[in-house]
């Protein structure tokens, strides 16, 4: 079975499931919007203050929204036994994982990216910085999905895995947060954001190269640890 046939089979499968469980992709998006929208209420409506904290606020909220959605990445497939069937299909588990991560990003990262210009205006971020904000979120949320999948694989089958998952994934996602918000801050101050974005792209490629393989190994251990 070809790489693309396998990927498209997994992607179509997970998209069909997600279309019937709307909460799966609406929840992280709502969380993101609510958290960002609370800041002007808490900090005060002064554009000067808001525009300074805007990059950090949007990026921290995006990070937490992605983390929130990671729990369901393998857990539902694990619970109904379809994950062990995927493991036994004789197909490359790393590619299956990659397909699932891409769908996860499509449902939990992409909506954040699309809504972000609106939230940037809410926080009085200079409009010039919006393209950089979207680009940094595009690269960053993909990286977070890839890294987060490793944590989701490692915590497979554990009760109350949420906190452990956050503890595992947060340290690894700190570089994404730092360079993501730094890129937006630089763009807002009319500096070039090229170097930050270049580093973020490097992080993405690194996560892409080791993420699926590591996650596949973690999932294999997680499934074999259960009875």
């Amino acid at each position: 079975m070809g790489i693309f046939a396998l990927l498209s089979c997994i992607i179509r499968r997970d998209l069909a499931i997600a279309m019937r469980n709307t909460g799966q992709w609406v929840n992280p998006l709502l969380f993101f919007i609510v958290v960002v929208a609370l800041f002007p209420l808490g900090v005060g409506p002064s554009p000067a203050t808001l525009s300074i904290i805007a990059p950090g606020v949007i990026w921290v909220s995006a990070l937490l929204a992605v983390l929130l959605s990671l729990g369901s990445l393998f857990e539902t497939d694990f619970a109904d036994g379809t994950l062990e069937q995927l493991l036994l299909s004789g197909q490359s588990l790393a590619l299956i994982v990659l397909g699932k991560v891409l769908v996860h990003w499509f449902l939990s990262g992409l909506p954040l990216l699309l809504i972000s210009p609106l939230l940037a205006l809410l926080l009085a971020l200079p409009t010039d910085a919006i393209p950089v904000l979207m680009l940094s979120l595009l690269i960053g949320t993909l990286t977070l999905s890839l890294i987060g999948a490793i944590g989701a694989g490692l915590t497979l089958g554990l009760n109350q895995a949420g906190v452990l998952l956050s503890l595992l994934v947060l340290p690894l996602s700190v570089p994404v947060l730092i360079f993501g918000s730094a890129a937006v801050t630089a763009a807002a101050a009319d500096f070039g954001a090229g170097s930050q974005l270049a580093i973020m792209t490097g992080l993405l490629l690194f996560a892409l190269s080791i993420g699926p393989l590591t996650t596949a190994a973690a999932v294999r251990i997680g499934v074999s640890g259960s009875t």
Binding site: R13, I17, N21, D80, G81, T82
Partner: peptide, 12 residues
Amino acid sequence: YLGHKAGIKGAL
């Protein structure tokens, strides 16, 4: 392999 769990997606 047919396991304890049916291995089918309830949503599909």
